[in-house]
């Protein structure tokens, strides 16, 4: 096992241990709830990071895919009376199909075009849902739109944790999200270290040679787009099930950029960047709750400032400091022998 993999494994185990320990030390339902929400963000952000930081796809449809997973879960339960547990994987699969359609239309283009088109797709989806006023079915005396309209769906069924764990159900839901997060990180790591990651490294280092050997950037990107959509959609489904509600709010511009900000703050292209970013931004969001009105303003300043001042995010900053320390140490000959030449990821 390479040093770098070992480091990632260690970090992963520490994170997992901390996540498992949390409910034993923290009693507050509010804190557990916020951490759960932060983990949802971290999952979505990690998939966006996989797309942008590793595969080079600048997609702005990430929350649209998340929302699609959530809506699909809610609608399967609402219209077909499905169990949430059955609906979630089905919805995730549907999200993959949806992403492949978007990807086929958008990924052939270069950077900025992809960004604008995916943004337009997300925005159209949002507008069509919000402006949906046609009655699809009547619930009691109330008219329901097919897409749930501006209100969305609520009380379509839950994870069953409430019945099983009574008041402790939040912790149970938290555990489920931790499991999904772990699976997502394992998946992300497998992609980066596996043949797909190798193909992208080849495309980056020597595009001509890679293409001559039959690696198609478009196909590779579409593949990663579809795979990452599975976890994004699944997270959307779990999100909808956890809150037992989903609305068009998740598709809004600001939600999307909250996710992007996490990746930026943590460090683009760093495996643990999204998690670090999610922790920092959710914490900052909490801290700014005191000055409630200035939350979005603060978020905007953070995004712009981090992008300009530390483009590699917090992890990049730590790497720099670590590198400098190491160089200082290497200069003293007695310690030089301990340090072997391997740069951190």
């Amino acid at each position: 096992m390479k040093r770098q993999d070992f480091a990632h494994l260690m970090i992963g185990l520490v994170v997992l241990a901390a996540a498992v320990a949390l409910p034993f030390y923290v009693d507050s339902r509010y804190v557990i709830g916020q951490v759960t929400l932060g983990l949802f963000y971290a999952i979505v952000a990690s998939q966006w990071n996989l797309l942008f930081g590793f595969a080079g796809v600048f997609s702005l449809a990430q929350m649209a895919l998340f929302g699609f997973g959530g809506y699909a879960t809610a609608m399967l339960c609402f219209y077909f009376g499905m169990n949430v547990w059955a609906a979630m994987p089905l919805a995730a699969a549907a999200t993959v199909l949806f992403s492949l359609v978007i990807g086929a239309a958008c990924l052939r283009l270069s950077g900025a075009y992809t960004a604008l088109l995916t943004l337009a797709v997300a925005q159209v989806m949002y507008l069509l849902i919000v402006t949906d006023t046609d009655c699809f079915i009547m619930v009691g005396t109330q008219c329901r739109q097919f897409t749930g309209g501006a209100v969305g769906f609520a009380r379509f069924g839950d994870l069953g944790t409430r019945a099983m764990f009574k008041t402790k159900y939040l912790v149970a839901n938290y555990a489920l999200v931790v499991i999904l997060f772990t699976a997502t990180m394992l998946f992300t790591w497998a992609i980066i270290r596996g043949p797909i990651g190798l193909a992208f490294r080849a495309l980056r280092d020597n595009p001509g040679c890679a293409m001559a050997r039959g690696i198609s950037r478009f196909q590779m990107q579409l593949l990663v787009f579809g795979l990452s959509a599975f976890f994004t959609g699944l997270a959307g489904g779990l999100y909808a099930a956890h809150f037992n509600a989903i609305g068009p709010g998740v598709l809004s511009f600001s939600q999307l950029f909250f996710i992007i900000a996490m990746v930026v703050v943590g460090g683009i292209g760093r495996l643990w960047g999204p998690l670090v970013g999610a922790i920092v931004l959710v914490a900052a969001d909490e801290a700014m709750r005191e000055i409630g009105e200035f939350r979005s303003l603060g978020l905007g300043v953070i995004i712009a400032a981090v992008m300009v001042l530390m483009p590699n995010g917090l992890i990049g900053l730590c790497e720099n400091i670590w590198d400098r320390l190491r160089r200082l140490r290497t200069r003293s000959p007695a310690l030089a022998a301990e340090v072997s030449g391997d740069t951190p990821a």
Binding site: F52, F58, G111, A112, A115, S254, F257, I260, A261, V264, E293, F294, S296, L297, L299, G300, V301, I302, I303, A304, A305, M307, V308, P311
Partner: peptide, 23 residues
Amino acid sequence: TFETTIMIATFGVALTLENIVLR
């Protein structure tokens, strides 16, 4: 990386300015 980073950074600017107007 300018092509993508500038989009993110200017979005941060947009968010900031829009909220200043709101305030």
